[in-house]
Design a protein around this nucleic acid. Structure first.
Lengths: 339, 339
DNA sequence: GCTGGCACTCAGGGATCGGGAGTGCCAAGC
DNA sequence: GCTTGGCACTCCCGATCCCTGAGTGCCAGC
């Protein structure tokens, strides 16, 4: 084992100890708790090097060392074998998710499960509209010239939208509208639906044309141009578990977690199915500079249906959380693909 | 002015000062900041009486006085004229709520608005299903023997439910099912729909009977027996604004606020349109024993469509919050009635 | 390159102490 | 009989000080 390797071991040990105790860790304690095979003095030398390289820091002179963001980053990158799920966890996941009826229910359970498994704040994104395809499009007349469009996707999402029509429509017209929309859109991916929608007003009876134009405009705007992505969060109470992690910075974190936009950027950037870890200042949003985010895409195929993940202090159990996030994503992916 | 009246004035002054400063308030400071027309010594005597009667308490000997739950209660009960909304607030409400498209949007904006106006945690309940009536019921076929029921109510709620049918159905059967359900249910209140539903399988062609029975059972269970009520919350970051209010008790409060059940009991018990205030231990849920809840029903008619309110420290601006909650409820009521 | 020894540095935790705000009580006054 | 000024008393809070102990960096020896 080269001295380089041992230094990495020391870093790993520091991270592990610090994560579990929340105290700056010193050379003596390290040599006692881990069998590194060298004396505290040697560890001290290694620590000095690690500090020079920016992987650890000491809060004040004569205190132990604490991993920096860069240190956590190296630790995470070096994380080789993911800890497998325990049987209990496996059962927990299954029993938690089975029996869910609709999409809302599935995601609510998922976020709860994830928060419970990781003891962090959990965030789950609804299946991305753009990547879903149309299962059904319902047109419900509210008043003479107001209709509600209800879109149902193959991922189970139900989106509604109220539109004001230029003129009043009869029942038959509504039926015709519905029929046309469905024959042209059913099975199509929303991302590809734009052209089909644009062409629709031309194939319609002149009487219906103004209405159809409005409906198409509404659909394009609401579902293609600015598709409304949604997320659910849970377990925010976990942020307060160790008050030391967020001395005075809890408020901005909570505020950030209430912003759908922020969360979407946090969780929704996952393309593939590899777990993504953002540590401390790697997060773009300033309020989250002392949090870490572990996220992954879920979905059956190669492109993710959506993302999910957890947010917590940089001092978190990365290995455990990565395993949990990955496992939950797989289960949810199967569940949603099967429905 | 009797001495009894003056004591109430003293109590009011104590509450006001304590709410704004968060410091136990003493007799001298009180006589300086309020023109009570008597000397500190007299105020001390009144305070002694108020303490005997349990309206105020001192954290420790030789400290100022702090209102007790009972004191806040008396203060709130004595609150006569509600402070009118300022023009700015009025405009804020209108601009915040206008332009909302669908129900989700309205409620999201409402909760945000309420949190912003009161600087507390805001909770808004979705219109209660049982008090809504059916606008449309859609049946969407997922696979040969799985259908998704989508209920749209007159309050704009869209509820989905996936059902497993006993046998496979053809397209025509689905259409017939949909037609039957809608002709029998449209316009009916969900609370009254039970009987109509039960009778449905009998008026249907024998081929459809098993499917109809399943659908009816599903509907009855999901929408009448255990209607799924929902709430949205916002502004939880406000809980951390004054860390002194929840020294170590923030976690249980956050946990309680994540429980739909707890929130529903908190907000959903409003029947009329009078503002309800729950102070400290008046709240049934133990974790909320040092919070106060201000809630009211919203809705156009005499029976509330749902409830909304705010949760905050017992040391809150009751008058202001009651006004804000009442005003927002009125606007939301109008908005939902008009759609 | 590892190790034991040693001097040095501070953060954190009592212990001490004084100031100041607040109280309760009492006797005098309107 | 209420109100008021005076006065002794209480005790929280913040500042100060000290000291202990964990931890470090460096150096000489193996």
């Amino acid at each position: 084992m080269s001295s380089e390797d041992r230094r990495l071991d020391v870093l790993r040990a520091i991270v592990e100890d610090y994560v579990s105790t929340n105290d700056p860790v010193g050379s003596k304690a390290l040599s006692e708790r881990h069998s590194l095979g060298v004396s505290p003095a040697t560890i001290r030398n290694d620590m000095a090097v690690l500090e020079d390289e920016g992987y650890i820091a000491q809060p004040h002179t004569s205190a132990g060392r604490v991993p920096t963001d860069k240190g956590y980053r190296l630790f995470v990158d070096r994380l080789s074998a993911a800890r497998p799920l325990s049987g209990a966890e496996r059962r927990a996941i299954q029993s938690f998710l089975e029996g869910a009826s609709d999409l809302d229910d599935v995601l609510r359970r998922t976020v709860r499960l994830l928060a419970q498994l990781t003891r962090q704040v959990a965030v789950v994104q609804y299946p991305i509209l753009a990547r879903a395809s149309v299962r059904h499009l319902e047109v419900v007349q509210l008043t003479a010239c107001r209709v509600m469009l209800v879109l149902i996707t193959d991922t189970g999402r139900v989106e509604q939208r109220v539109l004001e029509l230029p003129g009043s429509l009869a029942d038959d017209d509504i039926t015709e509208l519905r029929r046309l929309l469905n024959t042209h859109l059913q099975g199509r991916r929303l991302a590809d639906a734009h052209q089909a929608l644009i062409d629709l007003p031309d194939v319609v009876l002149p009487v219906l044309r103004p209405a159809m134009t409005t409906v198409v405009a509404g659909l394009v705007e609401a579902l293609v141009d600015q598709p409304e992505e949604r997320v659910v969060t849970g377990g925010t109470a976990n942020l307060t578990r160790s008050p030391l992690d967020f001395p005075n910075t809890l408020q901005p974190v909570l505020e950030a977690l209430e912003e759908q936009v922020v969360l979407l950027r946090l969780i929704g950037e996952v393309d593939s199915s590899t777990v993504l870890v953002r540590i401390g200042e790697e997060n773009l949003h300033e309020s989250l500079h002392n949090t870490s985010v572990v996220s992954v895409g879920y979905g059956a195929g190669e492109t993710a249906l959506g993302g999910l993940g957890v947010v917590g202090p940089t001092r978190m159990d990365y290995a455990g959380n990565m395993t949990a996030v990955r496992a939950v994503a797989r289960y949810v992916g199967q569940l949603l693909a099967g429905s």
